[in-house]
Computed example of a mutant assay.
Amino acid sequence: MNVLKDKVVLLTGGTEGIGWECTLAYRRAGACLCIVSNDRGSIARASAALNDDRVLLVEADVADAGAVEAAVAACIARFGRLDAIHNNAGISHPSKAVHETTSAEWDRLFEVNVKSIYHTTRAGLPHLKASRGSILNTGSLVGEIGQEIHAAYSATKGAVAALTKSMALDYAPFGIRVNAVAPAGVLTPMLRSWSLEQPDPSSAESYLNGIHALGYCPEGDVIADACLFLLSDLARFITGCILPVSGGAELGYRRVLKS
């Protein structure tokens, strides 16, 4: 279904993991894409794989306000409009308790996972007002229920959930919808890095399968399908929603990863 036909979507972190699956889903749905990433290698791989004039790849750090403004300007220069922003870029390192987390690590997590939404919104809002567009944030189930030895990351995702709801209220008068997806485990490079930081990495796979009521840890395509729905007109009366895409993990997620 071409549910995003002729829509222009700015997608951060769109060259790996969930973001890459969203890139593929949005393209199949007919969207033009401005993909923002700070990883030059993954940008090169994405460019070679896509080879599509409907896709603009921009190298930028989403924690840098000036770089984000330049990315939005490049998007408008290329496509002439902006219909949606998907704030997907994020980091999860380090996997530590609060007292073990350095100030620099704490700040970087919040700059990338939370303040980047501030940057994209400030830069893109005038264009979204013109298109009566939408904003989608990639959150996490841990933002609601917490996660052991992952305090700062969980805090950023809790902030994303609260921010999503506040933005939905602020921008509803302009016809702009704001929602978020909240995955549990998803088999991405970031999750595999997290697994290696655990007390017993060898048990991570069985743990990740076990926390989901449906019995397995999914790939990023299941999240991309939910994101596609929320950005499309099929979700035209949904705003302020934090949608769990979690295989029922919230029903029993507080299991301990044993050392």
Rank of each mutant, 00 (worst) to 15 (best):
V55D: 01
K165N: 00
I211C: 01
S246R: 01
D170H: 02
I149N: 05
P126A: 05
A29P: 06
E100R: 15
C217L: 15
S103E: 15
S166Y: 11
G185M: 10
G66Q: 10
K157L: 06
R54G: 14
L214Y: 01
Q198T: 15
R254G: 01
A224V: 11
V245D: 01
G248T: 04
G124M: 08
A249Y: 03
L10T: 04
V9T: 00
S140V: 13
G80W: 08
R236P: 04
G19C: 03
G146Q: 09
Q198V: 14
T138W: 11
V55M: 06
V181H: 04
L82V: 12
P173S: 07
D61K: 14
Y118T: 03
F229A: 03
P189L: 14
V256A: 00
A123H: 09
L109Q: 13
G248E: 03
M190W: 12
A70W: 15
K258R: 13
H127T: 03
A77R: 15
H119R: 07
G247N: 02
G14A: 08
M1R: 10
D61E: 11
C241R: 14
K5A: 09
R132V: 01
E21R: 13
S206M: 07
V160F: 04
G252E: 02
R40E: 09
I91Q: 10
Y207G: 02
L251E: 06
P126S: 03
L257P: 00
S206P: 01
L163N: 05
A29R: 09
H99D: 10
R81F: 11
L187K: 15
N137R: 08
R177M: 09
S259M: 00
I242K: 02
K96M: 09
R78K: 12
H212K: 02
K157C: 04
N88F: 11
A89I: 14
G240L: 09
M167I: 03
V245A: 02
N88A: 06
G80S: 10
I176R: 03
R122W: 13
A63W: 10
H119A: 07
G30D: 04
A89V: 13
G139K: 15
V3P: 00
V55L: 06
G124H: 10
I85W: 12
E69S: 07
A60Y: 05
Y171K: 00
T156G: 01
E69M: 07
T239A: 08
A71F: 05
A46H: 06
V178W: 11
G17T: 11
C75S: 12
E100A: 14
L228R: 15
G13V: 07
R177S: 06
S103N: 13
F237L: 13
S131G: 00
A46Q: 07
A235P: 08
L82P: 06
K165R: 13
C22R: 08
R108V: 10
A172K: 07
M1G: 09
P189R: 15
H212R: 02
H150C: 08
N87V: 07
L11P: 13
S116H: 08
T164Y: 12
L56Q: 04
S206K: 10
L128C: 01
L251Q: 07
G90T: 09
L257F: 01
A151V: 14
G66A: 07
T120V: 05
A25R: 12
E197H: 14
A74Q: 12
V160Q: 00
Y253T: 02
A130S: 08
A74C: 05
D6V: 07
V98C: 09
A249K: 03
Y118W: 13
A97L: 14
L125W: 03
S116D: 06
